[in-house]
Structures are given as C-alpha cells and as structure tokens.
Write a protein that binds this DNA or RNA. Structure first.
Length: 862
RNA sequence: GCGGGCGUGGCGGAACCGGUAGACGCAACGGACUUAAAAUCCGUCGGCAGAAAUGCCGUGGGGGUUCAAAUCCCCCCGCCCGCACCA
C-alpha cells in the first residue's frame, strides 16, 4: 500500500484547483451569496501560526458554504502601508516599496501552501497606487460631505527621530527607538468626524443590526463610545469679576446635577484656557501647569499621581445659594479632552473630589442619603457615597431620588438660562494624520493665500515619490525634504503652494478594503468601489479576526462605511453582519541554563523534562504563552507543512480548542493530526471506485442500518457544528464516525460507500487536499471542492428504541430500553419492573415518579 | 477601582433549554506484530474500597432552589481579558 505523501499530493491538487479556476467568483443572482472574510495580513514576509488558524477557519466556512450551494466570495490582500517598512529601510537600506512587495511575494507563496479556497484574482495591496488613489478620492468626498476637519491637537513628539509616536510607542515617557523624552507638541492635524456618527454607531450595537457580533466586542465598543447624559452649566465669577482673558463664567459638564448643593469647589484642566490665562500672569500658576504637562505620560504615572491643585485668585457664585462662593483650582486630574475641561466638585459623592477635598481641607457636604439611612447619623468622613438614595440638605431637591433630582436640577438651571442638558461622548474624532512616508498621501495643498485646499479630483492621484532608500537615514519624514514633490501651484490661485506631507493612518487603509474586494476587479480602474457589486456582496456575512481589533479597526470600518454611504458610494451602513474573534496560538516557553529563551525546535522534551537537542544541556520549561519572536516560542507553519503537510496543520489547529479560545500548539498534537490524515487514506485506499459502482442507487435490502444511522447522524452533527463555529466538536464527531466505520468493517459495500462518500465531503473543508485525493480514489464525480454537501436523511436520524437512565432519588441505578414513542405510563411501568431498580427500592415506598420521555426517569422513594 | 468572562481527569476539552459528568483527542499503561525500535493494531485509563459484582466520593470552596445542578441563585477563593481620574 502506498503511503500517503502530502509533499506530492498537496501541490498537485492546488494546481488542479488553479487550472479549473475553482474559486473564481462572479456575481450570480441565482444563488444566495456568502461573503467570508478574514482580517487581511500585514506583509511581514512570513506567515505564522496565528495566520494558519485565522485563515483555516475562514477556509472551512468558505468551502462549507460553497458545498451548501452558496456563491462564496473569499479573498486575500495585504495591509501593506506602515512603519515596519520604514524601519527596514533605516536598518537595511531597502526601499520601503521594494521591501514590502518582496515580502508580499514571499508571503503569498507561503500562504498558498495552506491550500485556501481563495479568489486570487481580487488580490491587492493597500500600497498599490490603484488602491490608494481611490482612498484619496474617498477623502475628498468625505471632505465635501463635511466629515473632514483640520484641528490642532497634542501629539507625542520624539525630538530625536523627529516623528510623532503612537501611544504604544511611548515607553515610560520615552520614545521606544530613540529613548528620548517624549514631548507633547501641538500640531495641526487632519480629523475624520467619527463623533458625528457616535449616536448611530452606539445605537446599532443594541438595536439588532449587530446581533451577529459577540457580546464582549459590542460591550467594548459601547464603553469606548462612552455616552453620558448630563448638564453643561455656567458658574459666574463672584460679583461680576472677569478672568484675565475676559471670561465672565466657567462652563462645566456634570452627570450629577443633583449634587449641586454639595458643591464645594470648581476645577479646570491644566490645558484649560482659564489656566493658560492665569499662567500668563503668574509664575506659580505657569509652573504648576508645566509640571502637570510633564507628568502623566505613562499609565503608571496616572495611577500613582496624587491629586493636586493650584488655587486661583477667583471665586464663583453658587447658582442656587446666594451667599455661597466656591474656590477655583487648576487640577491635575481634570481632562481637557472630556466635557468642557472643567468640573464642579462634590466631595461627598465623588471619590476623586473627595480625595481632593481631603487634601485641601474643603467642605464635604453630604446631599444624598442612602435609602433607609438616618440623616442625623449618616456621614461621609471615610469615603464618598456614590450609590442611590434620596436628596437632603438640598432645598428644593430634598426628598427626591437621585434620578428625579437630576431632572429637576436640569430643569431649574435651564430655567435660569445658565445651562442646558447635554449628551457627552468619550469617543473623540479620529486623527488620521501621520508624519510618515510609507502611507497614503493626504490629498491637500497648503497655500498662503487660499489656506488649505483639496487636491482637485482631476489631479489625483497624489503619488508617493520614488525615493532613494538613503533618505531614510535622516530622521523625520522624507516628504518634508523633497521640494520637487512638495512645491506645487495652488489649484485655486495658481500661486506657489506646498503639498501636505502627512500620510494617512493605516487604519484608514483597512476601513474600506472589504468593499474593494467585493468590487469586480474589472471595475477597479473606474472608482473606489462599485455600488452594484457591493449591493450584491455586502455586508460581509462572516468576518473573522483577532480580538485585538475589537475596538479601533472595527469601529473605524463601521464609521467609514457610514461615511461612504453618505458620500453615495454604497448603500449599506454596517459592513460586518457576523463577527467571530478567534483566540491566539500559544506554545510552551523554554530557557537554557543561562536564562536565554530557546526555540522549541532546539529542544527535546521527554517525560516532562526538556534538554537541548544538540548537547543535551538542561532546559527549563516555562509558562505557555502567545507565540512571539521575543520569547522564541514559535513554530514555523512552513516547517510543519514540510513535515506533516498543510492538511495536518489545518486539522490540528482547529481540533484541540474551541475557536474563540487560545490553542496550545504541541508537537504531539500535530503528529496526532498527521496520524489522522494517514488513517483516513488507509481507510479509503482499498475502496477504489466504490462511488462509481454505487453512486445514486437505492439502499439494498442488506444495507447495514447501524452504519447508515451513524453516517447520517454524523452528517447532521458536523453540519450543525460548522454552522456554529464549533470546529473542535465537528472534528470529534468525525473521529467518532471513523471509529464506528472501523467497527462496521464487515458491512455491505453499499453502506460503506455511502459512509465514505459522506466522510470525505465532511472532511473536505478541513483537509481539502486529502479529501480530493480520497474522492478521486473512490471514484467521485469532479472535484470534491465543488461537490454538494451531504444531506442527512431524517428517517435515519429517528430512533425506534431509546435507552433511558433510571434514577432512584437522583442517583442513576439502571438503564432501560423502551420504544421511542412509548408513553409515560409504559416507561414508568418498565422502570418500576426493572430488577436492578427493585433491588434499590427494597424497604422504600415510592412517593413520586418523574418521567421525561426521551431523557430520564427518576423515582422518588423513602 | 469599574466592566466582562472563566474555573470539569495527568493535559486540551465535551455535556444542546436543569435530565446517564468526563464524548473526542493527547499523554500514560498493558498486550499483539517485530531480532529490536519506530509505525500500526487490540485493550485499560476521574478518585477511594473491592478478586469481581458493586458501592461511596467527585465539575475551585461553602450554602441554597429542585424529583434532579457542571448548568439556576447567594457568599467566598483563584485566574484571564477590556477600560482606566471620562466628572
């Protein structure tokens, strides 16, 4: 018997699929469509196990849906702009474009070895001019639609590398590469007005439009959008005085206007205009503001930071209490970016205000009494009270609940004309400017006379200049240093002007790629997307990716889709109907005697102990962690494919754990998957052409009903499991069936042919190459990747007889066999007559018999 | 601190709406084949007691609801994830 050799067989079938154009997709209105999409990869150059898991899951769904008669769109492309290419240019002198495209070539070759059912004719990279030119067009359309704004904002500035850093690139207040202390710098930046859609982005999370999304992702987005309802109101300076900048009042935002009678101070953010106004006049104020700016870069600093304030030489009036004046502070814990950047402090009912008041010995006036508490005894000496209750010490609010008092207070303030009810979002507008080379140029021109002017659509694309790799040796954005690219005539006045040198955040690139995939490539030269094609394919029916994108990517894509709709490019507003977030691939970590991380490939593990493969030196086995280069606990998918084949790799990575959970890659598990592949081939090999001789005929009289039941039960179960993303369970069912098939080896050939025909089609989404080889061997028609999914015969799923457990007082004491349609009385009689049961009922009186047909019998006796 | 989730054999996990706990796989062990090993095949495999039949215990710990709890409720312990001074 020929041993199954994936090295020969797998490439053979990939060529056949290719030759048959098996996965090429066209609009076909006769079939229901199904768009399955995995988050596209960054072209780092090599695939890793996370890719294998992600794309294997998508591929199972794609192949399964194809077999079930859907017109399936399944594509691949490259999220190809971004910093690593520039880093590579700095380190190796390679041009970012050349580096990226050569990575793509290499990675595409690797990815193809997995055997994915993908329409490669739709492949593109976001750094293709043919893609990003249309992104510029979308931006202009958004600009026209009022969704683009230019605004000053603070950025993390690395003064050595002359670049803006993302928050995660700031480590302990220093640039991750240069180690220089990061400065906060105010820059004019481009913003997309995602907050314009905040209300709808939030509403869709709960109104059923995203019912196919996991609850935790919806929750994370809800918290991120962070809607709160409250009151914006003015506090007038005492006695009509004005601040140095001429203001007569401070506007604050609060969600607790009910606690106004407990107010004992006001505080403004260090970036607040009032703080700036006093800083200009007073050295002490300026020093305090400066100090606040310096601290607070890292998370740790915020955690530890003590609440501190600087008292300003002004007071404000309380709106309800004529003779109460409140001091005003600049405080380090107030955020300029939220609300109005100013608050009133009620120490009795806010933990932060309480801490602040304790430190500066401010009044703590309780105004909310917990239900059932005694007003005379209640105090807030130790901590603030933030729970529910009824108001006291609060004049016209006394006796009201917190909720009622909030409404009443807002009403009163609005009546006085010094404030309005207001909704506030935590979500900020999306800053899309990046001071980098390797990204999509923002199509704008700065003219001294005309200001900021969009590049006219006819002048698009703004192409990245072809530069020598050496320019990346100098810190900063090379675009800033290229006058021949930068200097252009103003489109409006034709005077001397300069191009915008910022490029887009790469999250922009990934915010519409799904709609580009849905557009027929023949139409790519004529627009960003084709509305008709998108109407057919969108939304994505199943989107699959890592949980790490739960907030930003998914929220941006949702916003972008709304923006594209507003600009008339598409009709849908939610891009992803169903979302699945898969877990990570983990592996044990190893360290040598010197404490250095060691690659699993260099380690031999036996009987729970590890040693170096080379010299046998002892190795410590560490914790199981996400595969990462830094801890060296990586296993190369390509090595595994070399060793066991792509099918075994796909099988194992889906078999061991539920898809949403982390999976631990173990060599034993991979070897086990290989055994399964060999076992299926060995099962099929002796049965050459059984499908040719038994295809489509009726079950003969001698058919093995038991095997047929197992076949059809397995088909039903596996179908249901794949439908619900329970790949690990589907695989367990296939193992179970294989065991049943083996036991039925004396069975008639017809039933065995039926079983094998079903088996091969069931494994096809998981191990597609093996399935084709088996299908051919069995004499199946055509390619198995185009064969219809097996159907379970309902008649064979019904059982005539069922086994029921019988309990006495909740403990299982026997099993009985009864007809499936037996009534309760008959079941009860059978149970009470069972010898084993009688033994347990000796000396007891039966009080009650619970019969759940098809499930269980429980006899209660004492 | 706030929000969410999880806890089942040596391990990954299964158990649908409260109804036979441990499917399936891995590891381990015993046996067959082999000069031997690997591979393969057959079998055992939660704990305790027992030769066995069988019995008792058992889903992080404690309590509760129920004829019946891994599943529902309350308290506690542990782990993981997200957010983090958002007024």
């Amino acid at each position: 018997m020929a041993r199954y050799n994936p090295k020969e067989i797998e490439p053979k079938w990939r060529e056949r699929w290719n030759a048959a154009d098996a996965f090429k997709t066209r609009v076909d209105r006769d079939r229901p469509k199904y768009y399955v999409l995995e988050m596209f990869p960054y072209p780092s150059g090599r695939i890793h196990m996370g890719h294998v898991r992600n794309y294997a899951m998508g591929d199972v769904i794609a192949r399964f849906k194809r077999a079930r008669g859907f017109n399936v769109l399944h594509t691949m492309g490259w999220d190809a702009f971004g910093l690593p290419a520039e880093n590579a240019a700095m380190q190796t002198g390679a041009h970012p474009g050349e580096w990226t495209y050569s990575n793509i070539d290499h990675m595409r070759r690797e990815l193809k070895q997995i055997g994915l059912a993908i329409d490669w004719s739709r492949e593109f990279a976001t750094c293709d001019l043919g893609y990003y030119r249309w992104q510029q067009r979308l931006f202009l359309d958004f600009w026209n639609a009022g969704l683009v704004e230019r605004r000053e904002s603070y950025v993390n500035w690395d003064p050595v590398d002359l670049t803006v850093l993302a928050n995660e690139q700031v480590v302990d207040g220093r640039g991750w590469r240069s180690g220089a202390v990061v400065e906060r710098k105010k820059l004019s930046q481009w913003f997309l007005k995602i907050t314009d859609h905040a209300e709808d982005l939030l509403a869709a999370l709960d109104d059923g439009r995203l019912k196919g999304w996991p609850d935790n992702v919806r929750l994370m987005q809800r918290n991120w959008i962070g809607k709160s309802k409250g009151l914006r109101m003015q506090f007038r300076f005492y006695g009509g005085t004005k601040s140095p900048d001429g203001a007569e009042a401070i506007e604050v935002y609060t969600t607790r206007p009910d606690t106004l009678f407990g107010a004992s101070f006001l505080a403004v953010a260090p970036d607040h205009p009032l703080a700036a106004a006093y800083a200009a006049k007073s050295k002490e104020a300026a020093a305090f503001v400066e100090e606040c700016r310096k601290s607070g870069a890292s998370q740790e600093a915020i955690d530890k930071a003590e609440k501190r304030g600087f008292k300003l030489p002004v007071e404000v009036e309380h709106p309800f209490i004529g003779d109460r004046r409140l001091p005003v502070y600049i405080a380090n814990f107030i955020l300029m970016g939220y609300g109005t950047g100013a608050i009133f402090g009620c120490p009795g009912h806010d933990a932060r205000d309480f801490e602040f008041a304790k430190k500066y010995r401010l009044d703590i006036i309780p105004v909310v009494l917990p239900f059932g508490a005694d007003a005379g005894e209640f105090s807030v000496d130790q901590e603030s009270y933030v729970g529910p209750g009824s108001l006291f010490n609060s004049d016209f609010l006394d006796g009201l609940t917190v909720e009622a008092a909030i409404e009443k207070a807002i009403e009163k303030i609005e009546g006085l004309g010094i404030g309005r009810a207001a909704t506030q979002f935590r979500l900020r507008d999306w800053g899309v400017s990046r001071q980098r080379f390797w990204g999509c140029p923002i199509p704008a021109i700065h003219c001294e006379k005309c200001g900021v002017v969009p590049v006219p659509a006819k002048d698009l694309p703004v192409e990245l200049p072809h530069v020598d790799a050496a320019v990346f040796k100098t810190p900063g954005n090379p675009l800033d240093r290229m006058p021949e690219w930068r200097n252009v005539p103003c489109p409006e006045c034709s005077g001397a002007a300069k191009r915008e040198t910022d490029t887009f955040d790469t999250f922009v690139d990934s915010s519409w790629y799904f709609a580009r995939f849905a557009t027929d490539p023949a139409k790519w030269p004529s627009g960003p997307v084709d509305k008709g094609d998108c109407d057919y394919w969108m939304p994505v029916d199943q989107y699959i990716g890592g949980i790490e994108h739960a907030i930003l990517h998914l929220l941006y894509a949702r916003f972008f889709t709304r923006a594209m709709k507003k600009a008339g490019h598409v009709s849908m507003e939610e891009p992803f109907a169903n979302l699945f977030t898969q877990g990570m691939v983990t592996h044990a970590t190893y360290k040598d005697e010197a404490g250095n991380w060691v690659l699993p490939d260099d380690v031999i593990v036996e009987g729970g102990k590890a040693r170096m493969a080379g010299d046998g030196a002892p190795v410590t086995i560490g914790s199981i962690e996400k595969m990462s280069k830094s801890k060296k606990n990586v296993v190369s998918p390509i090595d595994i494919i070399e060793k066991y084949g792509a099918d075994a790799a796909r099988w194992f990575i889906l078999s061991d754990s539920p898809p949403e959970r982390d999976v631990e890659w173990t060599d034993a598990g991979a070897a086990g998957a290989w055994k399964l592949v060999a076992r299926i081939w060995e099962t099929v090999e002796p049965c050459a052409d059984v499908l040719t001789s038994h295809d489509g005929d009726e079950a003969p009289a001698n058919a093995n009903v038991e095997l047929r039941r197992a076949t059809h039960a397995t088909v039903a179960a596996v179908t249901d499991d794949i439908e619900h993303f329970r790949f690990n369970r589907a695989i367990a069912r296939i193992y179970e069936f294989l065991n049943a098939f083996k036991k039925a080896r004396e069975s008639d050939e017809w039933s065995r042919a039926e079983a094998l025909s079903a088996l091969i089609r069931l494994i096809a989404p998981f191990t597609p190459h093996l399935a084709e080889e088996c299908w051919e061997r069995l004499g199946g028609t055509g390619l198995v990747c185009s064969a219809p999914w097996p159907e379970a015969d309902a008649a064979l799923l019904r059982k005539d007889e069922v086994t029921l457990p019988v309990q006495v007082n909740g403990k299982r004491r026997a099993e009985i066999s009864v007809a499936a349609d037996a009534d309760k009385a008959a079941i009860e009689a059978r149970a009470l007559g069972d010898a084993g049961i009688l033994r347990h009922l000796e000396g007891l009186t039966v009080r009650k018999v619970v019969v759940v047909p098809g499930r269980i019998v429980n006899i209660v006796a004492n």
